[in-house]
């Protein structure tokens, strides 16, 4: 069993968690059972999220509680608003993108592995309803006392995961999630109508593409590669991307690659030369030119301007 990552010290990493869960071959992300994130120490994530975050697919189910402020997010093409006092669930494998976040936003969230989610569903006695039947995004306005209770459960879970032996971590997480989910069971009672669940082949292809990006963008930057992986022509792939997102395939690839590079920069472990190697660029100068072409700044300029 892999260890849980419950360290919320690095503020930037806190907010890149969603990106991390898409990049499971990236630097430090491991497919762990549960992530816990919050910004109780008051960081303001606005600029970081809006500028840098490409669309991504979250591998894990995410449960968010918004204590203050507001978050606007697009999930599978549908815009949603997470208001203060809301507790929201985002299913796994959704195409997500942050639109905006109010400056005073305070939130806490759990990002839960699918295996653990299945165990929690089983604990709750939901065996016949497959998770895929649930809505992609459910949101619930909670009274203040309930929200504070959840926050205290979150904090307890945080301390417990830090405290107990590794053998018990999963059970503790499972138990707390079961309590929280049981409290919201009625959200999962509704049946999702068939029409909204169906995904056309093109949409499925597009999501496959995004998943592949999550997997290979640290190595491959050619549209040709991804198209071949999917069994379609590069032209068709580009057309799909434009239809579903407005950007063509190579823009998507660029976005993902640059996002990964930025994550690596934030880790503070590598210098520019090493980053170029890790990301499989042929030379450092090629990497520099590529970075400048996409972002407008050279890597060093970017690192300086972001205080790295």
């Amino acid at each position: 069993m892999t260890e849980t990552i419950y360290n919320t010290q690095h503020s930037y990493m806190q907010l890149r968690f969603l990106a991390k869960s898409a990049f499971d071959n990236a630097t430090a992300a491991v497919e762990d059972y549960i992530y816990l994130y919050d910004n109780f120490n008051g960081e303001n994530p606005v600029a970081v999220l809006i500028d840098d975050q490409p669309e991504f697919i979250n591998r894990q189910t995410i449960c968010v509680g918004i204590l203050k402020g507001q978050v606007d997010i697009v999930i599978d093409g549908h815009p949603h608003v997470m208001k203060s006092g809301c507790f929201c669930y985002v299913s796994a494998h959704c195409l997500c993108r942050f639109l905006s976040m109010a400056p005073d936003t305070q939130f806490f969230c759990f990002s839960v592995n699918q295996d653990l989610m299945l165990d929690v569903y089983r604990d709750m006695g939901i065996t016949f309803k497959m998770p895929s039947r649930y809505k992609k995004f459910v949101c619930r306005q909670l009274p203040a006392s309930d929200m504070l209770y959840r926050k205290s459960l979150y904090k307890e879970l945080y301390t417990e995961l830090n405290r107990v032996a590794p053998d018990y971590q999963k059970h503790v997480a499972q138990a707390y999630l079961c309590i929280i989910y049981s409290n919201d069971f009625e959200l999962f009672e509704e049946d999702v109508p068939d029409s909204s669940r169906a995904i056309s082949r093109q949409h499925a292809l597009f999501r496959d593409f995004v998943e592949l990006l999550g997997q290979y963008s640290n190595q491959e930057r050619e549209v040709q590669f991804y198209a071949r992986q999917m069994g379609i022509t590069p032209k068709y792939l580009s057309a799909l991307c434009i239809e579903y997102s407005g950007k063509n395939a190579s823009s998507w690839i660029d976005d993902y690659v640059i996002s990964r590079v930025k994550v690596l920069m934030q880790e503070n472990r590598y210098n520019i030369k090493e980053i170029a190697q890790v990301m499989h660029f042929p030379t450092q100068s090629f990497f520099g030119r590529y970075f400048k072409r996409v972002t407008g700044k050279s890597p060093r300029q970017y690192m300086i301007s972001n205080g790295l």
Binding site: D123, G125, Q174, I179, Y181, S182, F185
Partner: peptide
């Protein structure tokens, strides 16, 4: 409905 499960957890 799921109160029992919650108690078991």
């Amino acid at each position: 409905p799921m109160k029992e499960n919650s108690l078991r957890a």
